[in-house]
């Protein structure tokens, strides 16, 4: 079948501005959850003794938080300035997944788990920003594996 040059490569992948905005909100919320957990760990340092969170761990986790917030702001800028090319059908899936991520992070206070999950969310965010549906799907699958 001939494909005319004007035909969009993905018929279902119409640019959706609200999606960028909603994902931005989700990333912001994830960052806030991460920060709350970090704050709890810092406050518990006295009680945790040898297992207390180290400054290096705090810096690593905070760097993840900053990355999430920067990515959220990139998405807000995208929403403000242009449109985001992503599979429209993925929207709901992403939403529910990000919700699960946040809930998971609220339940578990294990630093290693946060790092893994936050990295997964971050990779998902950059896949979304790249607008490459295949990368998004791969990152979604990887993030699912990380979730307990």
């Amino acid at each position: 079948m001939m494909v005319t040059p004007n035909q969009p490569a993905l018929a279902g992948a119409l640019p959706e501005q609200p999606l960028a905005e909603q994902l931005g909100d989700e990333l912001t919320l994830t960052a806030a959850t991460l920060h709350a957990a970090l704050r709890r760990a810092i406050a518990r340092r006295g009680e945790d003794g040898a297992n207390a969170i180290s400054q290096q761990q705090v810096q690593t986790i905070f760097a993840l938080e900053v990355a999430l917030r920067q990515q959220a702001n990139t998405l807000y800028a995208r929403a403000a300035g242009s449109v985001l090319a992503v599979l429209a059908g993925e929207q709901q899936q992403l939403q529910s997944l990000l919700l699960t991520v946040r809930r998971t992070m609220e339940r578990h206070d294990d630093a290693r788990l946060w790092i893994g999950v936050a990295t997964g969310v971050l990779n998902l965010g950059s896949a979304v920003l790249s607008g490459n549906p295949e990368r998004i799907l791969t990152q979604l699958a990887r993030l699912r594996e990380r979730l307990p």
Partner: peptide, 23 residues
């Protein structure tokens, strides 16, 4: 959108101060 981006900017600035002050 500016408001939400501004909140993230705030949380980066205040977050860094908060986590560094703790140590």
């Amino acid at each position: 959108l500016y408001d939400r981006a501004g909140d993230n900017e705030r949380d980066i600035v205040l977050g860094l101060l908060e986590t560094d002050i703790a140590f």
